[in-house]
């Protein structure tokens, strides 16, 4: 929360922000750097580089893009790359941004896969992997808690969370069936009349 709020220099000059001309190469390079250094979630790195350091866009624009990214299918990191790239340099910028942000991690995982194929059944690798997998479960649970805290609008939302888990883990319904049926219910529950004017808690995502 605090990371976004008043301390940001970019926010103070939001009104005075002049649209800069950014070359396609600069877009590619920045997203490549972020793709190579953003361990543990790309969004805070994107904001730090593009909003705070380079001032290619202001916080308001960034947060709006984040809220679009979160409500569409796709990963936040790649959706943000598309929206930011398009804003900075049009369709080619979007293409350069998503390729660049995926490239370093993609190469890393390619070689991790090759290594795993050769050494994956060695005792010490298996033990380390078990530890990694268990830690990942903790990490996902923490994400569940943080996401629930900032993105839910009322307590009744817990029912939709419960229904989703029930449908998938107990009734073994497929993800699309669950997504469409529970999603539709939840959207109808939040139909326009009941929705208060205040926005989603998107900015807090930045803190992650």
């Amino acid at each position: 929360m605090s990371e976004l709020a008043p301390a940001s220099p970019a926010l103070e000059q939001a009104g005075a922000l002049v649209p800069k001309t950014v070359s396609l190469w600069q877009v590619f390079l920045q997203f490549l750097i972020i793709g190579a250094t953003s361990f543990g979630g790309a969004v805070p790195y994107l904001r730090r580089a593009l909003v705070v350091k380079l001032q290619w866009l202001d916080d308001k624009q960034f947060v709006e893009m984040l809220s679009i990214s979160q409500s569409l299918p796709g990963l936040n990191a790649t959706n943000m790359a598309i929206l930011l790239g398009d804003k900075l340099r049009g369709p080619l910028g979007a293409f350069a941004a998503i390729v660049a942000i995926c490239l370093p991690g993609g190469l890393y995982m390619f070689f991790a896969g090759v290594f795993y194929r050769i050494h994956g059944d060695h005792g010490w690798v298996t033990d380390a992997l078990k530890g990694i997998a268990a830690a990942s479960v903790g990490l996902i649970l923490a994400t569940v808690v943080q996401l629930a805290k900032r993105s839910l609008s009322d307590h009744f939302d817990l029912v939709f969370i419960g229904l989703t888990v029930l449908a998938i883990n107990l009734l073994h319904l497929s993800v699309p069936v669950t997504l469409i049926s529970v999603g539709l219910l939840a959207i109808l529950w939040h139909h326009p009349r009941t929705a208060p004017a205040e926005g989603l808690g998107a900015p807090e995502e930045l803190e992650k």
Partner: peptide
């Protein structure tokens, strides 16, 4: 007007999907 309803409605479902994925893993 439905834009915000969709955002609000999808929020708990995506938390649920995340949790379901967590149980699977």
């Amino acid at each position: 007007p439905w834009r915000q309803s969709i955002q609000r409605g999808l929020a708990p479902v995506s938390v649920g999907l995340l949790l379901a994925g967590c149980f699977t893993i």
